[in-house]
Design a protein around this nucleic acid. Structure first.
Lengths: 205, 205
DNA sequence: GATTGGTGAATGAATCGTCATTCATTTTTA
DNA sequence: TAAAAATGAATGACGATTCATTCACCAATC
């Protein structure tokens, strides 16, 4: 296959890169045909390597998808926490969360497709995920809301858990619609639309 | 296999019933292991019939899932339209939609699982579905919101399409969380929680 | 500078299971 | 008894994974 190593020093770097390249190829293939309709051979071809090579970097097809979710979610949460640390005020924090959510997924359609579609395409994954990354994400939102209630900016007659799910659900739906849409439009700006409703409600005062 | 027909008159009924029974069995199996991990043989066993018999009622495994979605969505929309016809006022209509949404799915966990998980588990299905039933559902919500704006009960600075997605997304997330939850709690009451936020927003006035 | 042997990465053809689907045969119905 | 419905073993494809073989590179030796 294409150039792999040249010098000692480079070799290591390139090994990591190849794992990355396979992951990238897998995302592309999964996004196009769905996990179960994708063959390992498809991924190998997309990555420009032989079928067997995939197994030098991943234990199984399943592990490829797992790796992807783990890393993507980890990245996302780390980034989120970092950004939130710099912000004061529950309202502004939620705004940042919403923007980050849509910016991140809106920046990479293939990644978004796999995330939205495949992650939900298996109860098993969902369960595991629910316990792990996803739950953590919802928790961050929930706590921010609870803080806002203590600070007096948010109504106190609402359960933070439920409110967190509502915000998450609304954002999630924006993403799902965006990936299914034929038209291509920027996703990130939808955050403000969502927040207008979320903060103020739809009723005319 | 179990008794199938006895008299003239019953025969037809039972034929329809058997199709129904297979569908029911399929939902149960799909809910438990996911579409791709379910064998046609599993469905047959669950329905108490031979593998081949499935093919007397459905052209393929794929068609089973399709039939399910088509019928479920059709039923749901028909019921929704009927109920909405009896209600005045955009606000009350939306309340009914939300309640119906959660009542229906909350009444049948297996159906809900297949609906939430499998429907999203394939871009192909989603695309087809998007064009068909799902789009129609979102349209109903969207129009109700637009009506509400005309009537002056809803804010006019919001795009009905987006608002419809927000409500749908929030409800959808309630369902998803409900099916993933270990604890068993009634789903329908969440409708009011969602609507409190949706109508009034989370900000303290 | 050329030659050679060792090492780990990469290859891709072959293997081994796993099902969806079919259909010759049997059972049930009328 | 003829027709219809049901059966379930056999078929055929498909595709994840394996592994014997090849390749690319390096450094030690001549």
């Amino acid at each position: 296959m294409s150039r792999s190593t040249r010098t000692n020093g480079e070799a290591r770097v390139f090994v990591a890169d190849k794992r990355e390249a396979i992951l990238r190829a897998a995302i592309k293939v999964f996004a196009g045909k769905g996990y179960f309709n994708s063959k390992v051979a498809d991924i190998a071809k997309e990555a420009g390597i032989a079928d067997g090579t995939v197994y030098l970097y991943f234990k199984s097809k399943d592990e490829i998808l797992h790796s992807f979710f783990d890393r993507a979610m980890e990245d996302f949460i780390a980034e989120g926490k970092k950004q939130l640390a710099e912000i004061e005020g529950a309202q502004e924090k939620l705004r940042r969360i919403a923007q980050l959510h849509l910016e991140r997924l809106g920046a990479d359609r293939e990644l978004a497709i796999v995330f939205q579609v495949e992650l939900r395409g298996s109860t098993k994954f969902m369960q595991e995920f629910s316990a792990a990354g996803f739950g953590e994400y919802l928790d961050i939102i929930r706590e921010t809301i609870a803080d806002g209630q203590k600070q007096g900016v948010f109504r106190k007659d609402l359960k933070p858990v439920v409110v967190a799910k509502i915000l998450y659900g609304a954002l999630d739906e924006m993403v799902t619609n965006w990936i299914l849409s034929q038209k291509s439009y920027p996703l990130a700006p939808m955050a403000d639309e969502v927040l207008k409703v979320f903060f103020g409600g739809v009723l005319q005062k």
